[in-house]
Design a binder for these strands. Structure first.
Lengths: 150, 150
DNA sequence: CGATAGTGGACCATTCAGGTCCTGATTGCC
DNA sequence: GGCAATCAGGACCTGAATGGTCCACTATCG
């Protein structure tokens, strides 16, 4: 349904969270704060680190911190970090699969669509997304109510 | 991967094809011309008809024909016809599922992103997609080469 | 030297889209 | 009036891929 993976959603949440904790935050810590299983958060952070969106510090007392300000991170980068390149069609990577290529009247016609989406996604930053989100009731002290994570 | 279903791709191909055949075209006919299994084409056409993008005529000598000109059909409508509403997140339709809603810092923050995409998609019509597609070697007489469909 | 934390990879399971088929309703033609 | 063609609307099955988990390894701090 033109939907992006849930992991990407997690990534956004994690990044916003990371911004709230100004210093360094560990993946277990973020997981607890967000209410998402730790291994999953770790996977997301790994991907983000790979794309240079967050900076990792290994070893004891290590953790992750934002590489840039939220306002400097377009949502498109997050999506590409988690979900890979932004391309709608299946026959983007030429080759087999599109046997009816000789019949296909819209051979590579999704390109303008892809470009339009990429552009739209680049114009929105994480700061935009975090801005109007639920007044401001969510800063650091978010107690994990019932579930007692960790 | 932010990818839309292959069905949507088929829909575009079918619609362009339908435009080439000015009059009425049957789903078996389109299937043969396009090189896509008939039941699948039928399913696509049905969805398209449901959204009013094509007009169906039942009975013998029936078939489908375009409801509007290609230039009047934004790609967003095709996507919505096949893939449903354009919404990236899973927690669009409020309710259960998002247990950590009380923790989620980006509650409904995908909205601007969704809007941006919708807008971008509405600006592109099928005519735009068909325009530059492979010169013009594809008009009505497209012989199904080897496979001998039907 | 040990505890903590990120790295990388393999791995399983659930979900869902793609695809097929069948039955019924409608209309034109002989 | 009956037959054939064609759309309509389901149920159903299968396979890929996403979400999620786990493990062994490395690095760094105290």
């Amino acid at each position: 349904m033109l939907k992006l993976s849930r992991l990407t959603d997690y990534a956004v949440v994690a990044l916003v969270r990371l911004d709230a904790a100004d210093g360094v935050a560990t993946s277990p810590g973020i997981a607890a704060a967000i209410g998402i299983p730790e291994p999953t958060v770790a996977k997301v952070l790994k991907a983000l680190a790979g794309r240079g969106l967050v900076i990792s510090t290994r070893g004891a007392r290590g953790g992750y911190r934002l590489a840039r300000r939220l306002s400097q991170i377009p949502i498109s980068e997050v999506i590409m970090a988690i979900d890979g390149p932004i391309a709608l069609t299946s026959c983007v990577d030429g080759g087999l699969g599109c046997e009816s290529q000789s019949l296909c009247p819209v051979a590579g016609r999704w390109d303008p669509v892809n470009d339009a989406i990429r552009e739209a996604l680049t114009g929105i930053t994480l700061a935009d997304m975090a801005a109007a989100a639920v007044p401001r009731a969510f800063r650091l002290p978010v107690p994990v109510s019932l579930h007692e994570v960790l």
